[in-house]
């Protein structure tokens, strides 16, 4: 039982990171239709923004975090200008390959800048452990789960209770109508990319202390986030969250109860089953793309 609680906690912490990555991916997808294969690199850049401010520049914790998120907002804006605008009218495949290509560039630039050694990233909860009779849980992991919950709430409030959020949803539903309504569509789309980059940045800052910062960590996270997105439902925020937690738990529980060698087949196998039998996922968008 103690072991089960331990596994559940670790699975949830892992799932939180997948969920946040998936949210960044879904925000962009639902507003712009772009399937962003560089989503994992966004998270990596977020972690290294933290390395730059907290480790290299040695800024104190809150300032360093804010600095890193400002960097991420700029990164999102830059990505909007350099990648999204030129490719916005291109077919899906071109966009997929374009984001993969720029992902290669981002990863190699990070390697050139930060080198190949992984970095330890500080956390406000460094070394704090909570012992619950045999189950040892790091305070950071609990903080990650709680922070993810709070972020999801804030994101919901932003999308449903603020003018900018409602305008973003209008753009996501129908760009032409949104434009006729007098919304400044391009600004809203730029804001979408910035928001997605900041969400990825938060994921990156939270995972850094758990997993170290490593320039190659982007793609594996993105793969799991894709599985999470499909399972939860393409384009659905609650889906991204549910999917993220599912994939995290499947990974840890699968390794424990099924097979550690084949555990990743569970996430991708379930993903394929969902695509076949319930392509709209748990909460997903209306299926237009199924014959």
């Amino acid at each position: 039982m103690a072991d089960l609680i331990q596994l559940l906690t670790n699975g949830l912490a892992l799932g939180s990171i997948y969920a946040l990555t998936a949210i960044g991916f879904v925000i962009v997808y639902s507003a712009t239709g772009v399937v962003n294969f560089a989503a994992g690199q966004f998270v990596m850049v977020g972690t290294f923004a933290g390395v730059a401010t907290l480790v290299n520049a040695g800024w104190p914790m809150p300032v360093g975090y804010i600095g890193a998120l400002v960097v991420m907002a700029l990164f999102g804006a830059l990505f909007y200008l350099i990648v999204y605008l030129p490719l916005r009218a291109s077919p899906i495949v071109t966009v997929i390959i374009g984001t993969v290509a720029i992902g290669i560039t981002i990863q190699n630039m990070a390697l050139l800048t930060f080198g190949s050694w992984p970095f330890p990233v500080p956390s406000p909860f460094d070394g704090m452990m909570i012992d619950l009779g045999g189950t040892v849980i790091s305070a950071h992991a609990i903080a990650v789960v709680i922070a993810t919950g709070v972020l999801i709430l804030l994101l919901w409030l932003l999308m449903h209770r603020t003018a900018i959020g409602i305008a973003m949803r209008a753009v996501a539903q129908d760009v032409k109508v949104a434009r006729l309504m007098g919304l400044r569509v391009q600004w809203l789309l730029a804001f979408t990319w910035i928001l997605a980059a900041v969400m990825a940045g938060i994921a990156g800052l939270m995972l850094g202390p758990m997993w170290f910062a490593d320039v190659n960590m982007g793609d594996p996270i993105a793969l799991k986030a894709f599985a999470a997105t499909v399972i939860g439902g393409f384009g659905s925020l609650p889906g991204a969250i549910a999917g993220g937690f599912f994939v995290g738990l499947a990974e840890v529980l699968g390794a424990s109860y099924v097979s550690s060698a084949y555990k990743d087949l569970i996430a991708f196998g379930v993903m394929i089953l969902f695509l076949l039998f319930r392509p709209q996922g748990i909460f997903g968008e209306k299926i237009q793309d199924r014959g």
């Binding site: 072991d3 331990q6 670790n10 995972l207 793609d219 840890v252 390794a255 424990s256 550690s260």
Partner: peptide, 20 residues
């Protein structure tokens, strides 16, 4: 004998199995 993937970040399941 427990395996983990090259990109895995959580080893608790495997370690707890070895402890068990």
């Amino acid at each position: 004998s427990e395996a983990y993937g090259q990109n895995d970040k959580d080893y608790s399941a495997q370690l707890l199995r070895l402890r068990e």
